[in-house]
Design a protein around this nucleic acid. Structure first.
Lengths: 247, 247
DNA sequence: CCTGTAATTTGATCCGGATCAATAAGTGAT
DNA sequence: ATCACTTATTGATCCGGATCAAATTACAGG
């Protein structure tokens, strides 16, 4: 997906500039008054780079920090008793990770890097201190969780009432839109996840996902070369995906 | 579902005793230190009783209070562009409602009473004041949202990988367990929602839900008389439902 | 209690997506 | 480049659940 932060990798630990971060408008500080953003910034640490396949979060591990992906992409999933993966979704830069951990203080699912990944972290004890004195941050945390919840509900609803091609179309449309908001070309990207990952995310088999790609290609809506995707007819995809539910 | 609070309906507005509420251990105050629970209590108002079919929450309406169902049950749903209902789930006493509203300040979905329903409300401005000085409540709100998120993720995962009878089995097992935690008989209850509601919740048709009930009845796991359900073999249901995913 | 209407069950058929199977295209290491 | 291996495409068949269609059972209102 060619996702890379434009900042220079410093290696420093607690020296992060949210101010100059390209992701600021998508991230927590983008919704905070200036002085609150400053205060938050001082609590943010930079996590070290992770290689593809490495775990950013392990299910059951103590939630000791709030994590936000800075560059790269990741896969959120749970491992079922049968040992299969339940893929909850994919994480792009500026998105927080492991929020379900607030439920118990331990993460509820796994998050693995799909590409070289860097991230920011706010240690929990610092977060709690900040929440004590920053009303904007309090609101922002609730907003963030509310948004994640809303998203999860929407995704579930879609699973329940959309057919295979519709799900794949929406997956692509959604990805496209999220890339666009991050300043990446929305109609020309490389998928960082396998067909199997997409399939497990959408409650389909990888064959069905592959066939959906094939159909879109044949219709002239998409150009597919393995994981390189070009969207030629975003309107057609959006139409098939169906509009997000209203009301 | 025969859900009724044991408290006498007072009609008073801001005179609620969380202390003596049967739902306390399931509700917000149950997780707070005593003096924080007191402070919260003083901000809680009693909502007026709603008749079946009435809306507790309308999608798009301004989220002016945190709502918790006190007695009765409700249906959470969204209305799609085609006018169909996407049923997100069902609400039992002690459960908060409309939490996705934190995302935007407006509720994201509808909540309708399925039975005569009463509820408690904490006005948003009072909630914000309390959050300023109650660290336990801050943690509790994050926990509540984290839990809702975790729940939504789990439900989505199940949709993606469980077949029709498994979904119905899990629906019943889940309901049974939630009733038990509220002190209701877990193996003998009346469903407050229609087959169609269950179907839309599980991403099935009402015929398929009905057939699943039929199968369970024939197997001797269930006694079904319209909406009256007796669970005869909870173990069998739980087995079919499959264990919740681990890790 | 009866009656009309809505909710539920049951039956018959059909189709989308799963499954099984084989081929083809990437990808990384030597 | 070549080889070994993983990932993706394509094909054939099968089955679970959707859809269409009655028949039956609850239930609210008179």
């Amino acid at each position: 997906m060619n996702i890379r932060s434009e900042e220079i990798q410093t290696g420093a630990h607690a020296c992060v500039s949210c101010r100059n971060c390209a992701l600021k408008p998508l991230c927590l500080p983008g919704h905070l008054p200036v002085q609150e953003a400053r205060a938050l910034e001082s609590a943010v640490e930079r996590g070290r780079q992770l290689a593809p396949g490495m775990a950013l979060v392990r299910a059951g591990a103590s939630m000791d920090a709030l994590l936000v992906v800075r560059s790269g992409s990741a896969k959120r999933f749970s491992v079922t008793l049968e040992g299969t993966e339940q893929v909850h979704g994919f994480v792009l830069p500026g998105e927080a990770v492991g929020l379900e951990g607030f439920a118990t203080g331990r993460y509820g699912c796994e998050v693995n890097a799909l590409e070289p990944l860097s991230y920011c972290r706010v240690p929990m004890h610092k977060l709690e201190q900040l929440l004590e004195r920053l009303p904007g941050l309090r609101r922002e945390m609730l907003r963030l969780l509310g948004q994640a919840l809303d998203e999860a509900l929407r995704l579930r609803g879609e699973l329940a009432e959309t057919d295979a091609r519709g799900r794949v179309a929406r997956f692509l449309a959604d990805l496209s839109e999220r890339l666009a908001r991050r300043g990446f070309p929305p109609y020309d990207f490389r998928l960082s996840m396998s067909r199997a990952d997409i399939a497990r995310h959408l409650g389909l088999t990888l064959e069905t996902v592959s066939r959906a790609f094939g159909t879109f290609k044949r219709e002239g809506w998409l150009r597919v070369r393995a994981r390189d995707i070009s969207v030629l007819r975003p309107d057609a995809l959006a139409a098939l995906a169906g509009a997000p539910n209203c009301a």
